[in-house]
C-alpha cells in the first residue's frame, strides 16, 4: 500500500457518520474498495472511529465474509454444494490445494496469482463437479483436469512475465 491516501476510506467513514456501531458496513465498503482488508486501513478505521484496532481486527477476523489477505489475480471458486460434493469435489479441493501449496488457513498463493474459495452452489449442478475461474465455468472435472487448468494458467503467466524481462 505505497502512498496510500485514505480519501476513499474517509468517504466511507463519513457516509457512516463515523459511527463505531457501523463498523461492519464500514468494513464491507472498505473490502469492496480494496478487495480485502489491508492492515493499515483497518488501523486507520480504528483510530478514526476512536476504537481499539484490536476490536476492528476481532470483527474482521470473525466473519468469514471478510478477508484479511489480498486475493489472487485468479480466483478459483470450487463448488462444494450437494451435487458437486457427491461427485467428489473434496478431491478437487485437495488436489488444487496440494498443487498450489495452500492450506485451510492460507487461501492465496504467495505470488498473488491464485485464491481458492469454496462456495455452496454455483447453480450448475448439471456440470458437477464444477469450478469457476474468474467467472469462467469449468464443469465435469476430475482432480487431474482441474490441476491441468491451473497449470495452463501458470504457464501463460510465466511466459508473459518472461516477455517483460
Amino acid at each position: 500500500m505505497e502512498n496510500t491516501t485514505y480519501e476513499k476510506v474517509n468517504a466511507i467513514l463519513s457516509e457512516n457518520n463515523y459511527n463505531p456501531h457501523g463498523l461492519i458496513p464500514i468494513l464491507q465498503a472498505v473490502q469492496e474498495e480494496y478487495r480485502y482488508l489491508p492492515e493499515n486501513v483497518m488501523a486507520y478505521v480504528a483510530s478514526s472511529l476512536g476504537i481499539p484496532a484490536s476490536k476492528v481486527f476481532g470483527v474482521a477476523s470473525f466473519y468469514s465474509h471478510f478477508t484479511l489477505q489480498p486475493k489472487g489475480k485468479y480466483i478459483i471458486k470450487i463448488c462444494d454444494g450437494t451435487a458437486c460434493h457427491v461427485k467428489k469435489s473434496t478431491e478437487i479441493i485437495n488436489a488444487l490445494e496440494k498443487h498450489l501449496g495452500l492450506t485451510a488457513g492460507r487461501r492465496t498463493t504467495e505470488d498473488l496469482l491464485f485464491t481458492i474459495e469454496t462456495v455452496a452452489c454455483l447453480g450448475t449442478c448439471g456440470l458437477a463437479p464444477a469450478i469457476v475461474i474468474n467467472d469462467e465455468v469449468h464443469g465435469l472435472l476430475t482432480p487431474e483436469k482441474a490441476v491441468e487448468l491451473v497449470k495452463q494458467i501458470q504457464a501463460k503467466e510465466a511466459n508473459s512475465s518472461g516477455d517483460k524481462e
Binding site: 484490536s54 481486527f57 470473525f62 468469514s64
Partner: peptide, 15 residues
C-alpha cells in the same frame, strides 16, 4: 481482544 471464531478463536493483539 478476541479474534477469529469457533475453535480458532484466540485472544491476541491486533493483526
Amino acid at each position: 481482544d478476541f479474534a477469529y471464531r469457533g475453535s480458532n478463536a484466540k485472544v491476541t493483539p491486533y493483526f
